[in-house]
Write a protein that binds this DNA or RNA. Structure first.
Length: 429
RNA sequence: GCCGCGAUAGCUCAGUCGGUGGAGCGUGGGACUGUUAAUCCCAAGGCCCGCGGUUCGAAUCCGCGUCGCGGCGCCA
């Protein structure tokens, strides 16, 4: 089946083609119908003239409103009057599926576009986003394949309330209380003992009542776990992975990126190594920029934005105070910091990866867990078993695929990085 | 959880001082053989988010509620 992209490239000049697609714009002017046709590859203007096509075809062309599905037979020709410079002179027109009153028109509110998300997915913008996302995911998988990682499939149903129970979706599992997973990390940790280096892409769920442009309640969580790797080696892996994907997207999605407002040259600058600074250094930089901060303060959006001002590639912030990080992160020699790293994206897109070397000290993990009220240590028995039987130094990280895509495509809102975004007020369509 | 803003035709919005609700787009009908989400003519289309209050009279003022959007926090 010929694609519009190829017709626009002149590959079918003068040769009759049959195009399958949807009406992008529909205009009539007396005995001529202008039908702009869209398929997955592009948009081209087709003209349908009375007397040139059979009368029945002309009637169908008049009836084919925006977003009707059609099959057009015609001959492509250069024509300066047509948008895009090419036009298909139709010899036959078949209306396959009518589209009366397509609800999305010239003026749309955010709310309508979210209510009609199943139809808005046809838009140029979301089409481009989905194409870039597919290439990005292909890039992640290719990098892991080429670097000795095994893809695995952990469960998203869990009885472990791993990081703060208030952010978990709870449901009834045959009479038992269970949760939708927030992270596959602990399951991946179990898998490294047989596979060394593993990764997975699973949905993660956060019941946080967040109202921001960088949070979803369900997101694509790309996680990896590596035996015999410390937190420095962990960062080496992350920067190679992210740089590989940025380069691939810049190379293979040039047209989509430009339409989305991202200069491919921006992504070509994303090369290894990425800058690495410690929490203490970050704190110092923030103070110089006028933030009033004390040791142990976490960073919010304004801080992340200030730290990344003018940055062309992502930056790691390492060695955070242990009291503001999770129980499973390995303590450094002093016991006051943890061997972790957050990877911040440029341009205020925020934290795209959180990773760390994992603690092997069961007693200190238990101590830190008990700081949280209502912790059920028994639920972690299986996790502590991993330290009991042949424990190894290991590290891992979690990457938010929609956050990375939002950054790569310069999106205004993370919800456009996924076809059916789930947010605090929305699970439909 | 906190702070803002909003809800009027299918859609996007205007609606003055509280006095019988409008426009553009879309839709239906008509004209047009080169349009660029075209142009011209005609027509249909309303529980002014809900409940209460003030008032002779409320889309308009007040209170409560519901829903939505934006920002902060939390995080990936």
């Amino acid at each position: 089946m010929p694609l519009i992209r190829d017709v626009l490239a002149g590959k079918h000049e003068g040769q009759p083609v049959q195009l399958h697609g949807w009406v992008y714009r529909h205009r009539t002017s007396g005995g001529i119908v202008f039908c702009t046709l869209r398929d997955s590859s592009g948009v081209i203007q087709c003209t349908v003239k009375k007397g040139v096509v059979p009368d029945a075809d002309f009637e169908q062309a008049k009836e084919a409103n925006n977003e009707a599905s059609v099959i057009i037979t015609g001959t492509p020709a250069k024509d300066p009057r047509a948008p895009g410079g090419w036009e298909v002179k139709s010899s036959a027109f078949q209306l396959v599926g009518k589209s009366p009153d397509f609800p999305i028109q010239e003026n749309q509110s955010t709310e309508l576009l979210l209510d009609k998300r199943h139809l808005w997915l046809r838009s140029r913008k979301l089409t481009n986003m989905m194409r870039v996302k597919a290439v990005m995911l292909r890039g992640f998988r290719a990098w892991f394949d080429e670097n000795g990682f095994w893809e695995t499939t952990p469960s998203v149903i869990t009885t472990n309330a791993c990081e703060g129970g208030s952010t978990l979706f709870t449901f009834d599992y045959f009479g038992q209380k269970a949760f939708l997973s927030q992270s596959a990390q602990m399951y991946l940790e179990a898998l490294i003992f047989s596979l060394d280096k593993v990764w997975c892409l699973t949905p993660s769920f956060r019941a946080e009542k967040s109202r921001t442009t960088k949070h979803l309640t369900e997101f694509g969580h790309l996680e990896a776990e590596e035996a015999w790797v410390d937190y420095q080696g962990n960062m080496d892996i992350q920067e190679q992975l992210v740089a590989h994907v940025a380069q691939k997207v810049a190379r293979e999605c040039e047209a989509e990126l430009v339409e989305l407002g991202r200069e491919p040259a921006d992504l070509r600058k994303v090369t290894t190594p990425f800058p690495r600074i410690t929490y203490d250094e970050a704190l110092e930089r923030l103070r110089k920029k006028g933030f009033d901060m004390k040791h142990g303060d976490d960073f919010g959006q304004p801080h992340e934005r200030a730290l990344m001002e003018g940055a062309e590639k992502p930056m790691f912030v390492t060695l955070w105070p242990e009291e503001i990080k999770a129980f499973y992160m390995a303590l450094d020699g002093s016991g006051k910091y943890v061997r972790c790293a957050d990877l911040l994206a440029p341009e205020g897109y925020g934290e795209i990866i959180g990773g760390s070397e994992r603690s092997q000290d069961v007693e200190s993990m238990k101590r830190r867990l008990m700081r949280e009220p209502d912790t059920d240590l028994a639920a972690y028995e299986w996790y502590f078993d991993l330290r009991k039987y042949g424990s190894v130094p290991h590290s891992g990280f979690g990457l938010g695929t929609e956050r990375v895509l939002a950054w790569l495509t310069k999106a205004e809102h993370i919800r456009d990085a996924t076809p059916f975004p789930r947010s605090i007020n929305r699970a439909y369509p």
